[in-house]
Nucleic acid binder design. Structure first.
Lengths: 332, 332
DNA sequence: CTGTTAGCGCCTTCAA
DNA sequence: TTGAAGGCGCTAACAG
């Protein structure tokens, strides 16, 4: 009738031991005589006993559950991170409470997840709002930001060097002879995009060029659907190369260019930022920065486990190395 | 120091009422004098009290948490369903414990999730193994299969009519004059693929054609990466049209054809099955069956809420209508 | 090596 | 409308 029918008491009675002993064998405590352990295990199996994790959580103050917040589970950037998180989580026997915080009041979602007594939280998103930061500071539950820099450097985070990556991309484009390199990203620039923009600027300045406002393109949302109009603007501009934040956006621009007779990469080069599967699907395929998405998630979770186990000297701000994948949207 | 510092006792003391009263206002029980309710609420706010969901779960035997199992969170088919599930879940105030069951022993994962006392479970996957079915039957926790038919019709599920959809696709291709229509799917055929295959066969038979073994193509895995070799086989076969299970696979075949000079759709037509974003990214864009992925997830979760609330007469096997999106990979 | 005994924080009768 | 009291199932000292 109920979810849980057989309890630790039932096992204890049936095995003719105390519940403490049953608890010990369930928790792998070694101070149990092998013969009684065997007896208990037999009864557990026979009765199909399954320890109630909720009761366990209440008594031990540990739930072996971590909260994971992300803006959009269908976004390849975020779900790639999530995969890494999930793998490491299950390796360490943690469950994940997933919250697609898109459109919901994040601090509300966070409060709710904290009420569930998660042992830790991984936060993914475009930026860290003040209300969320406040929640984080108010609780003792460990937090890690995955793929998002903390502008105040208070909260542990795992990232690549977005500035450096974009700097390198632009330098490369310059070397290939492109003259008017545009920058396309969603506005307003959130944390990571500010970093990327800085890398773009730095490269231009080193090359003795100044930033041309006419080469700064923006969209309100980096999702695929919103790329059509901006692509048209870009085509009509003097840009002969473009670095893009968001593969979906980059794909949209690429298709628009090709569909409208622009030769890529001869007349127009495109470099994108996340190296998701889309980059290999478009024609021409897209040259891209290759951030180790899975690893960012995995490392974030690994750090969280250390934090949850109260280990000392946990690395707080990890910068993972990135690579580049040269494909057909650039000359090289 | 601890996760949870302020408890219901603290609030009771501070508000000078009993904890029972605090519990009542927290749970929206109406039998509380407005003035004392106000007082309690004030204290709750002032103390930043947050009810401990674990304790609540233990006492009430409800966790307002549901388990969601899927094989791969980076797969667009599954994460689209997950988005629908998540939206409805948060609408009904449920949290989701997400388990990427890929490569792990599913029944183990399931047992683990059941130990967390979830109020219900949504299962997604390619098939329902016997061990999982056994687990499901052994527990009283409600289950719903999302995007997966139960071959034994025991467990509630939400799907489209895969057989009918493929039947219609093949009929359409036949009408357009294609003579040798191939069928490409991962082998062995799991539940849904068997349905799809049946639709393919049914259409051919109605047209007086028999199934040609040389037109049955297979891969071990429907993911994008494994499509190269099979695409080459298909190109060398007599097929002049192809229905594909899995958009990633379809994209791979399309790119291979185009890259190798085959004219799509003039010489070769392709129809895919899930209408994920990829279909609009390839050139030519892909004609596709349009299953309401988000809705399948949403309806599954809606049904699960009814089951969890022990409502009567809950619809058990829902078949949602599908559509078709005609794009450039077919003549029409 | 094993049992006894308090709680963990909250819900929920049952009385008042 | 409110309070007292007994669990929910398990962990974790503390004895023995």
């Amino acid at each position: 009738m109920d979810k849980q029918t057989v309890t630790i008491y039932d096992v204890a009675r049936e095995a003719q031991v105390s519940m403490a002993t049953v608890s010990r064998v369930v928790n792998g405590n070694t101070n149990v005589k092998p013969s009684t352990r065997a007896k208990v295990l037999e009864v557990i199996k026979r009765l199909d006993y399954r320890p109630n994790a909720v009761a366990r959580g209440l008594a031990s103050k540990k739930t072996t559950t971590v909260g994971v917040l992300l803006p959009d589970i269908t976004n390849n950037f975020f779900n790639s991170l999530a995969l890494g998180i999930d793998d490491i989580a299950s390796m360490y026997k943690y469950n994940i409470i997933l919250d697609n915080a898109d459109n919901k009041k994040e601090s509300q979602v966070l409060s709710n997840i904290l009420a569930k007594q998660v042992d830790g939280v991984i936060y993914m998103g475009h930026q860290l709002s003040d209300s969320v930061r406040e929640e984080i500071n108010r609780t003792n539950t460990p937090f890690v930001l995955a793929g998002l820099n903390d502008t105040k450097n208070e909260i542990p985070s795992v990232n690549i060097d977005y500035t450096q990556a974009f700097y390198e991309v632009v330098i490369g484009l310059l070397e290939q002879g492109y003259q008017h390199i545009g920058f396309l990203a969603a506005k307003p620039y959130f944390t990571n995009n500010t970093d990327r923009y800085n890398g773009y600027v730095k490269a231009l300045e080193e090359a003795g060029k100044s930033v041309d406002q006419d080469l700064l393109f923006e969209t309100a949302d980096s999702r695929f659907k919103n790329g059509e109009e901006i692509a048209s603007h870009i085509k009509d501009s003097k840009a002969d190369a473009l670095v893009v934040v968001g593969d979906e956006l980059a794909v949209k621009v690429t298709n628009f260019m090709v569909d409208n007779g622009v030769k890529v990469p001869e007349e127009f080069a495109i470099v994108t930022s996340n190296n998701t599967a889309l980059t290999e699907i478009v024609r021409p395929s897209l040259t891209s920065i290759e951030p180790p998405l899975y690893d960012i998630g995995a490392v974030s979770m690994r750090i969280l486990t250390k934090l949850m186990h109260k280990e000392e000297d946990v690395e707080n701000h990890v910068t993972l190395p990135h690579k580049f994948v040269l494909r057909d949207s650039t000359k090289h």
